[in-house]
Design a protein around this nucleic acid. Structure first.
Length: 494
RNA sequence: GGUCACGUGGCCGAGUGGCUAGGCAGAGGUCUGCAAAACCUCGUACAGCGGUUCGACUCCGCUCGUGACCUCCA
């Protein structure tokens, strides 16, 4: 394996609550499944953080040389609001509210989701399956669970028998729950409806004749339960047992617990070897969620048009801001933190821009190999992006020092440094260069500013600093900042 | 109530049983006609109370505080 030199990759397995060395089942292949969005509304920034976490995982595994099959689903049916028995399908509800066909809702918000992923430079998965595209697989899985005696049919619906399953298998292992405690804490003992136990969950739900989203099944017309699709599709594309399953912390229970139960019941083996859970984005200490009303969309973020935002922030600023925190911890949103991130990213990008211009020296006064090893070590330690970024700022110092002629690096070392920075910043962290409007961005504007720069240079040449400073100050007042460097004067927008 | 996290300097956020995280902001300096940028230097922080230890911010216990999950949620 090509990562032999890069050291073992440790990641926190939330099933064992330990940091473990990642060893794939069938190297060099890695099977990765991540719970995707339910496409019934716009994604907000909290959702983005989760997909970003697994984007970095995908990128790092790829960097290590693995051939990753990354499956991230689109939930387009079966996700109910509220209680499993009383709730309405989220997509059907939205379709009713917007007076659209359910599949129009699905298409609309799937498109929106993809736009957001592109905006934040989150790579597309290898396979993006939809629940409605895998009805046959889901029905087959329900039949296997029924055959194993872990489910029962009531009036056209099929429910998973949790107490029965728990008697023979470990249920609650992932989330640290026990069925007796769950039962004791069940809030609503009424409304159980057809279920034998409040812990049971729907595998297949009977649909009323008026229901738009329904399909034929051995139990009559209906639709699949929410937890089922992930099990059916991960099994289809990654096998009955695969390497890594990821999702947000809030999916741990019941969603992922139910996935494990379904797979064990249907196929007899635990589905996942490493479970990974990303933590939440909070606002003033509270989870960003639609129900809290504290979420905002990427569009609002870019324009700054939201009461929580002092100003707009670029997508890469937000990406950088999020990567400065470890994925397993909560990250609190604040304007001050975002602005700090904006400045930091600017410093990093300035150094990146200097990289091609650096001139080689005759000796090496910085150890690029050691720096590279520390970068790899940071990522191998449970995707520690904040530590990687700290190392990258060490590189920034080196780059600036070489540029200033304070530090020397040979041509070979410079090549290593360029390769390292490109790999870490662009490939691994996925920080895309954002086009800033500077010289060249707008021909007419640039020509105009160049004319002022020339006037100012003439003033300076005859020691008329008052005029020179006036030109600079007045341009600054309209947002054009001039900077004198050894190579002449450059300008950029404030 | 149950389960599980977390509490780090002005802010955001890593980490470790004894050795500078990093970014932003701030102070001083170098450079520059002056700025800006860059570089150098600086703050000696780890909720509280006990315990283990030669030594704890790091391990254990308790207290206080915050949050997540237990119902849809990335």
């Amino acid at each position: 394996m090509s990562n032999a030199k890069k050291g073992p990759f440790l990641l926190t397995n939330t099933l064992t609550r330990r940091k473990e060395e990642f060893v794939p089942l069938r190297p060099p292949h890695v099977g990765l499944y991540v719970c995707g969005p339910t496409v019934y509304s716009d994604v907000h920034l909290g959702n983005v953080r989760s997909f970003l976490t697994f984007d970095v995982l995908f990128r790092w595994l790829t960097f290590l040389g693995y051939k990753v099959r990354y499956v991230r689903n689109i939930t387009d049916v079966g996700h109910l609001t509220g209680d499993v028995d009383e709730g309405e399908d989220k997509i059907a509800k939205r379709a009713r509210l917007e007076q659209l066909e359910p599949m129009e809702i699905v298409q609309k918000y799937t498109n929106g989701f993809h736009d957001v992923m592109r905006l934040f430079n989150i790579l597309p998965p290898s396979i993006e399956p939809t629940a409605t595209g895998h009805l046959i697989e889901q029905i087959a899985m329900v039949e296997r669970i029924l055959a194993a005696g872990h489910a029962y049919v009531v009036n056209g619906s099929v429910y998973f028998d949790v107490p029965g399953y728990a008697a023979r298998h470990a249920y609650g292992e992932l989330s640290g729950r026990r069925t007796d405690e769950l039962l004791a804490n069940t809030r609503d003992t009424e409304g159980m409806g057809e279920k034998r136990s409040p812990l049971d969950f729907a595998l297949w739900k009977k649909a009323e004749p008026s229901h738009l989203m329904k399909w034929p099944s051995p139990w009559g017309d209906g639709f699949p339960g929410w937890h089922l699709e992930c099990s059916a599709m991960s099994t289809k594309y990654l096998g009955t047992t695969f390497d890594i399953h990821g999702g947000g912390m809030d999916l741990k229970f019941p969603h992922h617990e139910c996935e494990i139960a379904q797979s064990v019941a249907a196929d007899g083996v635990p589905p996942v070897r490493y479970w990974m859970h990303g933590n939440m984005l909070t606002v003033n200490g509270r989870k960003m969620a639609k129900s809290e009303g504290n979420g905002f969309t990427p569009q609002e973020l870019l324009t700054g048009d939201h009461k929580l935002l002092d100003k707009g922030y670029s997508a890469m600023t937000v990406r950088f801001f999020m990567l400065q925190c470890h994925y397993a911890g909560t990250l609190d949103f604040s304007n001050a933190a975002l602005q700090a991130g904006e400045k930091g990213l600017e410093r990093l990008e300035k150094a990146m821009a200097l990289l091609p211009k650096l001139k080689p020296g005759d000796t090496d006064e910085a150890d690029i190999d050691a720096l590279e090893q520390r970068c790899h070590a940071a990522m191998n330690d449970d995707l520690n992006t904040p530590v990687l970024i700290a190392e990258l700022f060490e590189a920034v110092r080196i780059i600036n020092s070489v540029n200033d002629g304070r530090l020397r690096l040979t041509a070979a070392a410079l090549d290593r440094l360029r390769g390292l920075m490109h790999a870490m910043v662009r490939q691994v962290l996925g920080l895309r260069e954002e086009t800033t409007v500077t010289a060249g961005g707008d021909g007419a504007l640039d020509a105009l500013v160049q004319e002022f720069i020339r006037l100012r240079a003439e003033a300076k040449a005859r020691k008329d600093f008052a005029t020179g400073d006036a030109i600079r100050d007045r341009l600054a007042a309209i947002g054009i900042v001039l900077k004198d460097t050894k190579e002449g004067t450059t300008w950029e927008r404030a």
